[in-house]
């Protein structure tokens, strides 16, 4: 399989043809236009090693995310960054390349925080291995972590090692009535206290808070915070993660603003939904891209056109000049012939 990938890549490189790396295709909507012949990763599947006591799983890129999570759950473990699947065919490779994290992001860390190692094939067709299966490794630059969120523009991620964590023993979801402004203040104040808060979501006057951890700690926090206990909490967070919550319905462009969490409500046209303690702000908005980008930039963050019915703007916030130069050089270092996912991250490459 790896040999087949390498041959395909070498052939494409010699003819300077574009390849589009694709797993389950569940994130085809994300990022720039889809260009080039498909390099399908799904047949390179399977778990290479999993030892619960090492807290590490190593699996091939085509491994289905739902199968991987099911296997971990059987041993009482999970991917702590709670990745969105966006469809049952989602693969591990696509998950890492997209770099998206779910509701637990602020408590547990982002996907990139859990990447321990990766085997990749670069744009020359060379097989390379970075990082490994151990928790601490500072030998060489952390290229494995660089792959997280690189949207397949640097190479084919053929195998990944991820840190896994135990499932929390207990979870509870609380609901509070609150304005947006109060919710942002409250989420940040609570995040500054040693509380087992594992997710937050504010929408339409309601703040949802999930607690996770040892039973005693969750119960104590529940007493401390008050609010109304939500029965079907687990379902709520899953629907939210998968964007099946009603906020995500309809055709209006979906913007994702990542902001410093304590930023006061940003007055922008459109309906907001806030996650990650204020750090991730979804917006259904027809406002011009420049307006949203400037507002996000001014607040110290960035805006991404996450989903739109048709292409209205570039997906990602443009980079400052010096950073853009380094991005181009890195792209050239990994993929000198510009084979992989052309234009998927930025139009110039």
């Amino acid at each position: 399989m790896i040999e087949r990938f390498r041959e395909t890549i070498r052939a494409a490189a010699s003819q300077k043809r574009a390849l589009r790396i694709r797993g389950g295709g569940t994130k085809d909507f994300y990022g720039g236009p889809l260009r080039g012949e498909i390099l399908d990763t799904r047949d390179h599947a399977g778990v290479v090693s999993y030892e619960p006591t090492e807290l590490v799983v190593t699996a091939r890129c085509g491994t289905r995310l739902d199968e991987l999570e099911r296997m971990l759950a059987e041993r009482g473990q999970r991917l702590a960054f709670e990745p969105p699947h966006f469809g049952e065919t989602a693969t591990l490779g696509g998950c890492v390349a997209a770099g998206l994290s779910g509701p637990r992001r602020m408590a547990a860390g982002a996907l990139r925080d859990f990447v321990l190692g990766a085997k990749i094939i670069d744009g020359r067709g060379d097989s390379l291995s970075f990082g490994g299966q151990v928790m601490k490794n500072v030998a060489g630059y952390d290229v494995a972590r660089l792959m997280a969120g690189s949207l397949g523009t640097l190479g084919v991620i053929v195998e990944v090692s991820l840190k896994v964590l135990p499932m929390p023993a207990s979870e509870a979801t609380l609901r509070f009535e609150m304005t947006q402004e109060d919710a942002i203040g409250t989420m940040n104040r609570w995040a500054g206290r040693p509380l087992p808060i594992s997710a937050t979501c504010w929408h339409a006057g309601q703040l949802m808070v999930r607690l996770s951890g040892a039973a005693a700690g969750v119960a104590a926090a529940q007493r401390d915070l008050g609010g109304e206990t939500v029965e079907e909490g687990a379902r709520f967070w899953c629907e939210l993660r998968e964007q099946r919550h009603r906020f995500f319905e309809g055709p209006a462009p979906l913007w994702r603003l990542a902001l410093p969490p304590a930023t006061a409500p940003v007055p922008l046209a459109g309906e907001p939904l806030i996650e990650w303690g204020g750090g991730e702000r979804w917006l259904r908005s027809e406002a011009p891209a420049e307006v949203l980008r400037e507002a996000a930039r001014a607040a110290g963050g960035h805006a991404c056109l996450f989903r739109a019915p048709f292409e209205t703007a570039e997906p990602f916030q443009p980079l400052a000049q010096a950073l853009a130069r380094i991005h181009r050089s890195l792209k050239a270092a990994f993929d000198p012939n510009g084979v992989f996912n052309r234009g998927r991250m930025y139009p110039e490459w």
Partner: peptide, 18 residues
Amino acid sequence: LEIGSEAPDAPGYDLAAL
């Protein structure tokens, strides 16, 4: 170079990893 940000993430490659 401004690498990463005070927001949960930054656009482009994860240069903070490097």
